[in-house]
Simulated assay, not measured.
Amino acid sequence: MTDTVRFCVVRHGETGWNAEHRLQGHTDIPLNDTGHAQARATAALLARQRFDAAYTSDLRRAADTARAICGEQLAAEARQALRERHYGAFQGLTHAEARARHPEAFRHFEARTPDAPFPGNGERLTDFAERIRTAFEDIARAHPGQTVLVVAHGGVLDILHRLASGRPLDAPRDFRIPNAALNWLRRDAHGWHIDRWADEGHLGATRDELPNA
């Protein structure tokens, strides 16, 4: 890749399950009122920003956030590959409920054990990371020299940050991933780079309820 691709990656707005610290994964949960307000605030901030293309997870919390940001100027292409990690039997549970019902699996979840399986056919962390890396590399190849908006999920942004920073998958997270914040990255011939992360000044109070995984 010779032409730098600039990415603005946004985590979807808040949902009711975010507020309850309930694991969503592939469960299709809508934005709550706060999430819709966050999407509108992000849209206002980006109103003068020109994007050559836009992509979104096909889950509606991301797709509705993307629709608010893009307005009538640009249609975001929905891609299943941009979904959150599949949390298997953890989906729908709070962190406390998952720990109580599946203590061994939750221990690996908290420790970010890369190859540990999830009960209920969830994704291993290594498989999820490879899915997200491939999805973003595919988008980058399709848009040399362009600026691209992507709306996705907290786990997706966790993988992207590690891809750009070189932080291992099993290292504790030491960076924020707020709902509806802006994260600017570049993909060039030398790899991925972070330009600005967790820009949330337009949002006021934001939630980052994500666990360490």
Rank of each mutant, 00 (worst) to 15 (best):
Ala44Ile: 09
Thr15Lys: 00
Ala53Thr: 01
Asp174Gln: 10
Arg79Gln: 14
Gly155Asp: 00
Leu93Ile: 10
Gly155Asn: 00
Asp195Met: 07
Ala66Asp: 12
Arg196Asp: 14
Asp208Met: 09
Ala213Phe: 14
His161Asn: 12
Arg167Val: 05
Arg83Asn: 09
Val9Ser: 11
Phe90His: 11
Gly120Phe: 07
His86Pro: 00
Phe7Leu: 14
Arg48Ile: 01
Leu185Pro: 06
Glu200Ile: 11
Met1Cys: 08
Glu110Arg: 08
Asp195Ile: 09
Phe7Trp: 14
Trp17Thr: 00
Cys70Asn: 02
Met1Trp: 08
Ile194Thr: 06
Ala198Gln: 12
Thr56Ala: 04
Pro178Ala: 12
Gly155Arg: 11
Asp64Val: 05
Glu200Trp: 06
Asp28Met: 03
Glu104Cys: 01
His86Gly: 05
Asn183Thr: 04
Ala181Ile: 07
Gln80Asn: 06
Glu200Asn: 06
Leu125Arg: 07
Phe136Asp: 02
Ala111Arg: 08
Glu14Cys: 04
Glu97Lys: 00
Asn179Met: 09
Ala19Ile: 01
Leu203Cys: 08
His143Ala: 10
Tyr87Met: 12
His153Val: 05
Val148Asp: 11
His202Trp: 07
Asn32Phe: 06
Asp208Ile: 04
Arg124Met: 13
Pro144Leu: 13
His193Lys: 14
Ala39Trp: 01
Pro178Asp: 15
Gly13Pro: 05
Gly25Pro: 02
Ala98Cys: 04
His21Ala: 12
Leu45Trp: 04
Val150Ala: 03
Glu130Ala: 14
Gln49Arg: 12
Ala189Arg: 15
Gly154Glu: 00
Ile132Glu: 11
Ala75Arg: 14
Cys70Thr: 15
Leu203Ile: 01
Leu149Ile: 04
Phe7His: 13
Ala37Gln: 06
Ala53Glu: 10
Ala62Leu: 01
Glu123His: 07
Ala100Tyr: 00
Glu137Arg: 05
Ala142Gly: 14
Arg187Asn: 02
Ala66Val: 04
Arg186Asp: 15
Val156Pro: 09
Thr56Glu: 01
Glu97Leu: 05
Ala189Leu: 10
His190Glu: 11
Arg196Ser: 09
Arg6Ile: 08
Ala135Glu: 03
Arg85Thr: 13
Ala39Glu: 15
Val150Ser: 01
His153Asp: 12
Thr134Ser: 14
His26Val: 06
Leu125Ala: 03
Ala111Lys: 06
Ala181Gly: 11
Arg6Pro: 09
Arg11Phe: 03
Arg61Met: 14
Ala111Asn: 07
His102Tyr: 15
Leu82Ser: 02
Pro144Met: 12
Tyr87Ala: 03
Leu210Ile: 03
